[in-house]
Computed example of a mutant assay.
Amino acid sequence: MPYTIVRSTQFFEFLGGIADSSAIGNVIRISPGLFQPIASDDVAAFVADAALAAPKNGIVEIAGPERGPFNEIVARYLKAAGDPREVVRDPDARYFGGKVDDRSLVPLGDARLGRIGFDEWFRRSREGA
């Protein structure tokens, strides 16, 4: 059976939940492993493209346009949201139970990159709130 699997990095929309899941009081422990979140609007566009195109009989990797340390991206989100909690860089911090390194949360090969960066996504998310 012909198929295409669209494999995505984590969505920007989950940054608040990620922070909450890693919090102990006002401290959030996050790995410095690389992270490349994507806007759900970009995911929807890539999935629509895949659905309308000929099957790849394989995987299409997608990711956001910006890559950086996981802890720094979460800290950036909290600062933009006005959340005063402290993000602590912790190489031993777990992400929903799993250890994170520089290859865990980013595409491992060629990937199609979304067009919506953090600043634009955050602005849009506040306008729609």
Rank of each mutant, 00 (worst) to 15 (best):
R29V: 00
V47K: 01
A45P: 00
A111G: 04
R76S: 13
D41K: 15
Q36R: 14
A80P: 02
P69S: 08
E72P: 06
I38G: 04
P32T: 11
F35D: 01
A19L: 01
D83W: 08
K56Y: 02
V60Q: 09
I28S: 02
A81W: 09
D41F: 14
A39C: 11
D41E: 15
P84F: 15
V43K: 02
P84D: 08
A81F: 03
P32S: 12
D41M: 15
R115L: 09
E86V: 08
A93P: 03
D92M: 02
G82F: 15
L113H: 12
R94I: 07
G98A: 12
A80S: 14
I28A: 05
L105T: 10
A23T: 02
A63T: 02
S40R: 07
D41L: 15
E86K: 14
I30S: 09
A54C: 03
N57Y: 12
P55K: 11
G68I: 14
A51I: 14
P32D: 12
G68S: 10
R103I: 00
L113V: 10
G109E: 09
D110N: 04
G58I: 01
A39D: 13
V27I: 05
A81I: 08
R94F: 05
V74T: 00
D42A: 02
N26W: 13
S31H: 07
E86D: 04
R85P: 04
L52A: 14
L34W: 13
A80W: 04
K56W: 03
A93Q: 09
I62L: 01
